[in-house]
Design a protein around this nucleic acid. Structure first.
Lengths: 332, 332
DNA sequence: TTGAAAGCGGTACCAA
DNA sequence: TTGGTACCGCTTTCAA
């Protein structure tokens, strides 16, 4: 590893000059520049990011805080983030928060000390002031997947309400007469929006009542249990819209376990579009979020902000897509 | 953010002294120490990792290079690594190599410049010299999942051969009379070992011949295609041992698609133990690797090496476990 | 037992 | 256009 001083010596110029050509700022004579560049090549010089960071420059590092990388929704998101970061010479710290506010907070603090240039976070608990602290430290933040209403910072999310509409309408179209909803935790904005979308459509039908809504915790087990409860209170339901794919999986298991024919007796539609939905039998109809695109967009915007090319805080709502598979294929 | 100078000033001592109590090295008078500690508390002082790094100390950062975080095998591994790292105050850079040697190499270079203290890598292409370069730079390396024979560095892997034995024996026990193997890419040590394990058992039977082995690329599509080929060349197979769960999934799809009863006509057993295997119908019997434990152990060992508590390069082979599910449940 | 000061490898201000 | 140099925040050697 050669240093900037080595380059300066070989090129016969000052350290300051080398720094100038390195950063392409300040006046540098064309010839000197060439000499310096040549010296850099010769020594195979690459600036030390740590030293740069200490001197107040970008460390070309961002961090990604998400609930749990082993939840099937996140790996694709993480992959997108890393891909775009890498393309822009950034590296990414991975942090699992388990949705714990204090874990999030402590990660944010540590990351800040480590000199990250930006932060992407999937959270439903970050506080206004945390974001502001980052903002004051000139560290851009992008809220991914879960918007926080009271925060004014860039957000990237999917069209949850529209997606819920599409799901319910699809179930109606294939002939469902009584559609239940397995919702996510109500403190999650995404879960709330999908519930709202569901209600907006079904509330106009006389068969609708609140017992058709059960909360499932966004995981497989919760989905299965919610399904069990629904089957008890409403044995005649013939359509399910679950708030995410993991719960759909659980619900499907329970339905099959109870001897229900899916989609014959009960059709079911999920939300997210994770790969898993393709591997079940029957394959699961779902509202696919553009997961990769969301991660990629978030990262792109973040990096733009880091570079100072972008300033306003916009909210990006990406369209979702109904993917019809056998779990709603009534073939009638 | 207060600096060490602030602390020194408040405590009325020199910067050097503060540094000494901070690092618990060198002589420090008990009383001075208390004064300094008090000043640190008062200012809420925390040393800047970047400055520390530049001054030649640990940056409390490791990096994890793996093929692709969106491959279902890796999120749990990554989670384990991050968990253990975090518990030890380390943070982790996530890098996706796509099994590309040049991507790996460039990551390693960049990471080294960024001052990582250690590296965990899942790779089948790292070169001896790359490892040695790291070693020379005093950066410990742990090879995870895929051992490289010619490298002398710490490795953590699963007992692939034993696992393959268990799989094939299980298929024999439930009455299979002709067992095929869908193997992974032969340049992967893991795939090779599982093939070896398979062969060691089946070669003693007169029904065995090489047409019972098809390569599937370790992914779903590859598994499905391999299954298709096997069904053509050996329509009478009644047992499949696939080299990993993703291929098992693909093979299962194909079997069901061809109208085969699983496990009635054909029983199938995978390898890895990823969650996915629980969500199919039928659920898949598999040889479960202790994925989380492998990641955790690798990280634990790495951090020990970073701290200088450990030096020899050992290879850890973790036991696998046969998990019997319906894909091999012949109930006879 | 403590402090002064020289790095670590860059950046950037100020003079020249 | 260029160079000298203070500084980023901490570690460590050497003297005191």
């Amino acid at each position: 590893m050669s240093t900037i001083r080595d380059v300066a010596k070989i090129a016969g110029v000052s350290v300051a000059t080398v720094s100038r050509v390195l950063n392409k700022n300040g006046y540098v004579n064309k010839d000197t520049e060439i000499t310096v560049l040549r010296a850099m090549k010769e020594l195979n010089f690459e600036p030390n990011p740590v030293a740069r960071g200490l001197a107040g420059k970008k460390m070309m590092t961002i961090s990604l805080i998400l609930p749990d990388i082993s939840n099937p929704f996140f790996p694709e998101l993480a992959r997108a983030v890393e891909d775009v970061a890498q393309k822009n010479q950034f590296n990414v710290f991975l942090c699992n928060s388990d949705n714990l506010e204090n874990k999030e907070k402590s990660y944010i603090e540590v990351m800040q000390k480590k000199g990250i240039d930006g932060l992407i976070i999937v959270s439903n608990t970050v506080e206004e002031e945390t974001i502001k602290a980052l903002h004051d430290a000139k560290i851009p933040v992008v809220l991914l997947d879960r918007p926080l209403t009271n925060n004014n910072c860039t957000m990237v999310k999917a069209q949850n309400i529209e997606g819920a509409h599409a799901a319910v309408k699809h179930l109606l179209e294939i002939g469902c007469k009584k559609i239940a909803h397995i919702s996510g935790p109500m403190n999650l904005n995404t879960a709330y929006e999908r519930l709202v979308g569901y209600k907006e459509i079904v509330s106009q039908f006389e068969w609708f009542n609140d017992s058709l809504i059960e909360e499932g915790g966004f995981d497989i087990k919760g989905g299965r249990e919610a399904m069990k409860r629904l089957l008890l209170t409403n044995p005649d339901i013939d359509g399910i819209f679950a708030g995410n794919d993991l719960m759909t999986l659980g619900a499907l298991k329970e339905l099959l376990h109870m001897g229900k024919n899916v989609p014959g007796q009960v059709a079911i539609c999920g939300f997210d579009g994770i790969q898993l939905t393709e591997y079940t039998e029957p394959e699961i109809t779902t509202i696919a979020q553009p997961i990769y695109e969301m991660g990629a967009l978030a990262t792109d915007v973040l990096i733009r902000q880091i570079k100072g090319e972008l300033n306003e805080n916009k909210t990006f709502e990406l369209p979702v897509q109904l993917i019809i598979r056998n779990s709603t294929n009534k073939k009638n």
